[in-house]
Amino acid sequence: MRDHYDFSKMKARKNPYARLLKQSVTIRLDRDTVAYFKALASRTGLPHQHLINLYLRDCAMRKKEPSLRWRVPRSRSSR
Rank of each mutant, 00 (worst) to 15 (best):
M1N: 06
R2Q: 03
H4A: 08
Y5R: 11
D6V: 09
S8R: 12
K9M: 05
M10N: 02
M10L: 08
R13M: 10
R13A: 13
R13E: 11
R13S: 09
R13W: 05
K14T: 12
K14A: 14
N15L: 04
P16I: 06
A18L: 14
R19I: 09
L20Q: 13
L20K: 10
L21D: 07
K22D: 07
S24Y: 01
S24H: 07
S24I: 06
T26A: 12
T26S: 14
L29H: 00
D30V: 05
R31L: 09
R31K: 11
D32N: 10
D32Y: 02
D32G: 01
A35M: 08
Y36N: 01
F37I: 03
K38N: 07
A39V: 08
A41S: 15
A41P: 00
A41D: 00
S42T: 15
R43Q: 15
T44M: 09
G45A: 04
L46V: 10
P47C: 05
H50G: 04
H50L: 10
L51Y: 02
L51R: 00
L51I: 08
I52F: 01
I52K: 01
N53S: 14
N53Y: 03
L54F: 07
L54N: 05
Y55M: 12
R57V: 07
C59S: 04
C59E: 08
C59I: 10
C59L: 15
A60Q: 09
M61D: 15
M61Y: 11
R62K: 11
P66E: 06
S67L: 12
S67H: 08
S67R: 09
L68T: 03
L68M: 08
R69I: 13
R69F: 04
W70I: 09
W70L: 10
R71P: 03
V72C: 06
V72G: 03
P73M: 06
P73Y: 04
R74M: 12
R74D: 12
R74V: 13
S75C: 06
S75G: 09
R76P: 08
R76Q: 13
S78D: 12
